[in-house]
Amino acid sequence: MKLIDRYVAEVGKSLLLVKGRKDIEKELRSTLEDMLEERARNSGKPADEIAEMELLREYGAPSKVAATYNPNPYLIGPRLFPIFTTILKIVIGAVTLGMTIVAIIQIVSVSPATIAELFTIIGRGFMNIVSACIAAFGNLALIFALIERYAPVAEFKMDNEKEWDPASLTKEPEPQDVKIWEPIIAIVLTFIAISIVNFNPEWLRLNYGDNTIWFVGFGDFVKNQRGSIPLFSEAFFRWLPLLNIGWAAEIILNGMLLRTGRWQASTRLFSIVIKLFQIVVISLFLSGPSILGITPESLVASGVFEAESAQHIGGLAQQGIRFVLGIAIFGTVVDIVKTVYKLVTQKNA
């Protein structure tokens, strides 16, 4: 039964991410052995390798058999796909616009001396737009693929699964209607945050040059750059997985708002869950080492500040970030209270 064992192993290879793979393999082996035995009994021929080959040929290619056990063969399934395409259009549009603006700023700031230099900058800008769009597509697909795999499917009901009453068309627009630009801006900003923090953390630095011009982000804009200080500490990046979960949830929430066009009980509840999660994350920021990379030590190391002023400014920055995080928690709590109020009044309306 060597061939059956190998066949089962081949099927198993295609089921690595399917729950209950071992059970499937065990059941498949048992079935094939039953079939082989029965065939040998009925035909009077031995259950040898030739019989095994005949049986396995009829049973089908391992990949085909494995495919029948995969309950969700999609990277992004039909429930999430409409939200995915909506968000993708917005993100690609925003990335193209943003990168075009960056390219224009570069042309203006560099002031190319020759036509060739100008075309080089334009060409580089175009390539940057293309690669940024590809990266945006990949990142968004990755986020949705992870949600598809790990988030409960019931969270994402498609429009045609909900009860619809034509009488809803006769009602005047209600206060819970969402202005279309709100979720769009939220999606774009969240996506920019995800992209920068995850894939371009080097942008989150204070860059300085000889003339001590400080600029957050592109070091290219600082003439004669001498060095830079990271805005965020290693402690901040340790919490990145939690931040990403929160941001991914924000994108989904805004995608849902964009599709439904109004706040519903489900979206308000989802929003409350996200805000509670944000409070937990901010509390974690406050409880551990500082998330801000601007410290007296880093300022002294920059060589721009004297030890005393570095101590003063660094200390202020550290106190400032704690104050900002405290305010953020307070603001989020207020938001939750407002959302709960709207949820209750919406239900009673």
Partner: peptide
């Protein structure tokens, strides 16, 4: 078989 076994699991 390719229909029955996945159906049983489902």
């Amino acid at each position: 078989q390719g229909t029955l076994y996945p159906l049983l699991r489902r």
